[in-house]
């Protein structure tokens, strides 16, 4: 190395300082302001959330306080509590509410009972390969349209349908169209939504705990009851929220296989569609919302939401 040799370029000089393009300036500006960064990131989803939940709910509440001119169908925007009072005191709405809750609870119960063994098999017994196949099989019905599945059940339950064909040799009959058919169909439709959270919950239960339980002499049921179930509880609750809330709002299935019965959704639908009475429909729609609030509050008290 000679003295007058040019000094080797330092690393610093090798990279020319980046050009101050607009995006770069912006990123420099943002990097110093974490709060602004966060608020920009969250603005879009929060705006959507506000629009969908808060504004829609507020609009619903406001509409429920209006009335409609029965003949011309024009909404008269003067405040009144008549609709709410009608809905709370009317015997029709009480009967239908109780029926809807009953259907939703039964659907949820059936779904949980069916989902538990399936999810357990998927998570703990099946091989990895089998597991994938089963997850796809569970998801498969979601690829088909809701309407197609409901109509499929309509033909399955019809006179001369598959159910009757199977049940006849045993001296049984198809339930026909009605509430039992509605419960069967809804339980079928929402099953994937219950299986998946329970399956995910079971995946988190370590096998070592099951082995430990068995090493300590616990039988199958004891292990399930004392180890698996408490750990699984939040997942079951999550699944039940899906099936319960989806059943509470359904009106299409009951229209297709429900025979002559109606649920809260049908009352809302017929008040919007047939009677053109949006305010009353809005008042009725507040019932399932109130019930869901109660349901979530109860669930919260059990502590099941804490580890979700």
């Amino acid at each position: 190395m000679t003295r007058d040799a040019p000094a080797p370029p330092t690393d610093r000089a090798a990279v020319s300082s980046p050009r101050a393009t607009a995006p770069r300036q912006l990123s420099v500006f943002l990097s110093k302001r974490p709060r602004l960064r966060l608020s920009l990131l969250l603005a879009a989803p929060l705006f959507w959330l506000g629009l969908v939940y808060v504004a829609a709910l507020a609009a619903l509440l406001i509409t429920a306080l209006w009335t409609v001119d029965s003949f011309t169908g024009q909404i008269s925007q003067s405040w009144t509590l008549d609709n709410i009072i009608t809905v709370v005191t009317g015997s029709l709405y009480q009967v239908v509410t109780v029926r809807t809750i009953g259907v939703a609870l039964l659907v949820t119960l059936i779904d949980i009972l069916v989902a538990l063994p399936i999810a357990f098999f998927m998570a703990k017994v099946a091989s990895t390969r089998m597991q994938r196949v089963l997850v796809i099989a569970v998801l498969m019905p979601l690829w088909a349209s809701y309407l197609v599945k409901a109509y499929a059940w309509r033909s399955v339950l019809s006179q001369g349908g598959i159910v009757e064909w199977i049940a006849k040799p045993f001296g049984l009959e198809s339930p026909g169209y009605g509430l039992p058919a509605t419960i069967i169909t809804l339980a079928y439709l929402w099953l994937p939504y219950v299986i998946l959270p329970i399956y995910a919950g079971l995946e988190r239960v370590p096998d070592s705990l099951l082995e430990a339980s068995s090493d300590l002499g616990a039988k199958t049921w004891r292990t399930l009851g004392s180890i698996v179930l408490p750990m699984l509880w939040p997942a079951i609750i999550a699944g039940s929220i899906f099936s319960f809330s989806l059943s509470m709002g359904d009106y299409i299935t009951v229209n297709i296989v429900g025979g002559a019965s109606q649920l809260l959704g049908n009352l809302v639908y017929s008040n919007v569609g047939a009677a053109n009475n949006l305010p009353l429909a809005a008042a009725i729609a507040l019932i399932p919302i109130a019930i869901m609030f109660v349901y979530l509050a109860v669930v919260r008290r059990t502590g099941a939401l804490d580890n979700l």
Binding site: I62, T72, S76
Partner: peptide, 9 residues
């Protein structure tokens, strides 16, 4: 609510 206001039919 204010935006919607109340008006007669």
């Amino acid at each position: 609510m204010t935006a919607c206001g109340t008006t007669g039919g």
